[in-house]
Design a protein around this nucleic acid. Sequence first.
DNA 1: GATGAATGAGGATTCATTCAT
DNA 2: AATGAATGAATCCTCATTCAT
Lengths: 230, 230, 230, 230
Amino acid sequence: MTLHSAGKRQRKEREFRFRRAEILERAEKLFADGGFHETTMAEIAESSGFSIGGLYRFFSGKEQLYSILVMEKVRLMYDEIMGAVEHEESTERKIRALVISHFAYVEHHIDFYRLLVGHESGLRTAGLRNLREQILDEHRKHVARIEGVLGEGIQRRVLRQLAPRSLANALIGIIAYYKFAWIMNPHGESLSEKVDDVLELFFRGAAPAAGIGPGFHGPGKERTLHQEAE
Amino acid sequence: MTLHSAGKRQRKEREFRFRRAEILERAEKLFADGGFHETTMAEIAESSGFSIGGLYRFFSGKEQLYSILVMEKVRLMYDEIMGAVEHEESTERKIRALVISHFAYVEHHIDFYRLLVGHESGLRTAGLRNLREQILDEHRKHVARIEGVLGEGIQRRVLRQLAPRSLANALIGIIAYYKFAWIMNPHGESLSEKVDDVLELFFRGAAPAAGIGPGFHGPGKERTLHQEAE
Amino acid sequence: MTLHSAGKRQRKEREFRFRRAEILERAEKLFADGGFHETTMAEIAESSGFSIGGLYRFFSGKEQLYSILVMEKVRLMYDEIMGAVEHEESTERKIRALVISHFAYVEHHIDFYRLLVGHESGLRTAGLRNLREQILDEHRKHVARIEGVLGEGIQRRVLRQLAPRSLANALIGIIAYYKFAWIMNPHGESLSEKVDDVLELFFRGAAPAAGIGPGFHGPGKERTLHQEAE
Amino acid sequence: MTLHSAGKRQRKEREFRFRRAEILERAEKLFADGGFHETTMAEIAESSGFSIGGLYRFFSGKEQLYSILVMEKVRLMYDEIMGAVEHEESTERKIRALVISHFAYVEHHIDFYRLLVGHESGLRTAGLRNLREQILDEHRKHVARIEGVLGEGIQRRVLRQLAPRSLANALIGIIAYYKFAWIMNPHGESLSEKVDDVLELFFRGAAPAAGIGPGFHGPGKERTLHQEAE
DNA sequence: GATGAATGAGGATTCATTCAT
DNA sequence: AATGAATGAATCCTCATTCAT
């Protein structure tokens, strides 16, 4: 009977998780469409096939539901992205994997991205202020890991001798804006096609290659900023 | 008497504008702290020294107040930024001016930036959906102007023969993320110091200059992506 | 100078009355269109060309304005109607004059009638409860005067030996409903054309004349109610 | 279980209707006392033993509550009245039944009558303008049915060859005013006692029967209007 | 006297959360 | 365990009235 109860409990447990996940999935869509305040517990209940009271068996309240939803997804997202990165060896392949997986994630989780982009970060209640901090923490960890990759690349002389933080800012910024632009505009083209674009710009920058063009000026700021003046 | 009344009306008019601006300023701070929904008209009234009813002489409602606040500031922001750009002649100075003025604007309008970053874009009501579209429109216009600058740079051979849109995405992305990172982190360092960082990364990219290092491979993707593998 | 001031005061007085009347006239239209609550002091001010504060020189508040408006008009109405009646000598001419002047008054004061018909009589505040009583009082006086006319008619054997109150109820009811029907329906036909209709029905009733038709049954209820059964 | 749930649902349904009716009943009293605007949702909630929010399970808002209240009652009223009429065969009995049931309805639904008499018909909002039209529509239907009865009476030679509309106006007018007078005055006497009064006046009019009195003049307006002058 | 800006009480409505069934 | 009816605090907005200018 111990075995039996154990099995029963396990099944219950599994079922519990399953239902919880289902609620989160439906809520994700609703929050993405309407934002936190515009979405009501009644709508979430309706949409997920539960009763209003039933939701409270899985979550202690609306804020917790929202926080858990966002945090779970944020962690999954960064894990998935960094997982792809860690499978690679060379710095360049890592960076390429980073861009690819970032883009793939948006493309496959549009609702979550819309939710995240539309997330009102200045929320006043304690629970949601906390959420904001947690999201930022995860983001910071993500940045740190990227800095690690880039720092390694610098040591390997694949990247220039700049502050890893600066390189990370640029890389993340370019990736983030491509994602934003894609989300905000009519999705004619796939984001995945832009991977090479991003890599090209991140690695080689916007200026024509040295030695080509009016003359060679050596690396550095001076060249970059005054080249045209000549 | 005409003169007298005219003067009076002008004074009233000026005072009206002044008070309205004052309300907006206070509201900006509150919205930045708490978001749209968490901020009440009563708080705005309290904070700006008006009665609740008084606010309605200046704005037809909370949504209008918020929308006007955001749109006025967004337009001012882009105008100020692009104004600085247009004073420059060379492409490189234009781009440098763009970065500088972007950064300066954030530094001088922290509250507004926090508001904009925390702006919940998934708001359901007609008025706020409209606001979202207007913000995006202004943003698109801004991007288009930057594309113009970059397109010119391409013609002048100061920038590589890439799609202006791609260059713009990269530049805006890097700028935006620097701003975001600065807003979100303890503001030890000034953002203005980072201008050269951004320019360096945007123009020259993350890879070491060609012709320096293990060998020269000519420009192009191949080099960029496989250099390390060698 | 006494004379002078007296003249001045008189002029002021006249002007005061004139302005007051003008306000009431404009307010009448607004109240007729929108009812008491839907009409704001600001609208009345706007419509009558006064400032909001200015209205309070003539009336101590909205309820008083409304009450005065209604009571003055109600009294004028009944006075005008009964004035026409009193000019007549014979009972029948008096009754005819009553109908005519009732109808004429509606036709010439549609706004006021709409106001009166739309008047919410169950108002809770002391001032408006009082108004309701006053209107009823005037109405009762009007009914009493009509009863007087009708009582006289009974004595003169021009009217049947019924209770004057009953005759009055019938007459007033018929008149009132004609007015109501006319106000509520597309005003194709003029109400004045209906005067003879009303008189015919009031005097002679709906049943065919005795002695004409299947047989004579003598006056009285029996005939009226069982005639058809035969 | 189907049976069980079905029973349960039915019980719920019945209870829902019951509570809804209870709210309407209490609201009727309050609206009758204070009119639409003076009555607050809080009062209705208090009076009917619900919480404020609870009312919104039954009605989508105050206007809907009011509209439903009025329309349901208006329809019931006319149905009940005309139901009594339709049970009769002869025109005279029909008319008598009409008067009786009109009077009975007022006597048994004083609150509703007060509400209807005090109903402010000039309400500005869309919902209440609509209500006004609906009330008028029902009234028009009622008038049309009465015209039908009277038209039939004309064909049966029980009523004079006048326009059915005119006869209807007179009958309805007399009935309505008796009701109004009764509602507005201290209710010493019962309205039902007045039925014969009304019928006598409607059928035979106010003038003495022809052939009785100073002389016989034959039927027609001339007699009616100039009799006294002779 | 005249103005109209300012006040703020008051009311309809929403919705997260609870809890009796 | 599950339900969903009930609660009532919280919020936006209106507008009669006042009063400084």
